[in-house]
C-alpha cells in the first residue's frame, strides 16, 4: 500500500541518499568510505522507493538493469586488476593526474576497482531487496 508521507520523504531523501553515496564513494579514496558502503547507501535509497511506491513499480523500473550492472561491476573490478600488468604485476595500481580547471584529481585503478565493487554491491543488494519485498508473499493464489 503506497504511503503518502513516505512518498514525500522519498522525493526528498532519495537524492540526498544518492549524493551521500557518491560522497562516500569518492571519500573512500583516502578516508573511511568506499564502494561497498556507497553501494549500501544507494541501495537504501531504492529500499525507500520500494516502501513508498510498492515493489512492482520499482521492479519495473530497475529489475532489467540489475544483472547487467553486476556483470559490468565484475568486469570493471577484474579489469582494474588486469590493468596492473602495465606496471609489471597484476593488482599493482596505476595512477594518473587529471586537471579539472583549478582542481587536480589523482585518479587510479583502485578507484576503478571501487566502482566495480559499488556496482556489484548495489545491484546484488537491490535484487535481494526486491526478492524479499514481493507483494504476493504470504497470499495464496
Amino acid at each position: 500500500m503506497p504511503e503518502l508521507y513516505l512518498r514525500l520523504l522519498d522525493r526528498v531523501l532519495t537524492p540526498i541518499l544518492l549524493v551521500l553515496a557518491a560522497y562516500l564513494f569518492l571519500r573512500g579514496h583516502n578516508e573511511p568510505g568506499g564502494g561497498f558502503i556507497a553501494g549500501l547507501a544507494a541501495a537504501s535509497a531504492i529500499q525507500l522507493q520500494i516502501l513508498s511506491l510498492g515493489d512492482e513499480p520499482v521492479r519495473r523500473r530497475y529489475a532489467r538493469f540489475l544483472h547487467p550492472m553486476a556483470g559490468l561491476g565484475l568486469f570493471i573490478a577484474l579489469l582494474s586488476a588486469i590493468l596492473g600488468i602495465l606496471r609489471g604485476g597484476y593488482f599493482s595500481s596505476l595512477w594518473g593526474k587529471v586537471q579539472l580547471g583549478e582542481v587536480e584529481l589523482e585518479l587510479g585503478t583502485p578507484l576503478l576497482f571501487d566502482l566495480g565493487v559499488f556496482l556489484i554491491v548495489f545491484s546484488v543488494i537491490v535484487s535481494f531487496l526486491l526478492a524479499l519485498s514481493r507483494q504476493d508473499e504470504g497470499k495464496t493464489p
Binding site: F128, R134, G138, T140
Partner: peptide, 17 residues
C-alpha cells in the same frame, strides 16, 4: 546471510502457496 534470508522467504512463500 542475505542470500539465506531470500531462500527462506521464498521457501515459506512456496509452502504457503
Amino acid at each position: 546471510v542475505a542470500f539465506l534470508v531470500v531462500l527462506v522467504s521464498r521457501r515459506n512463500m512456496l509452502v504457503e502457496q
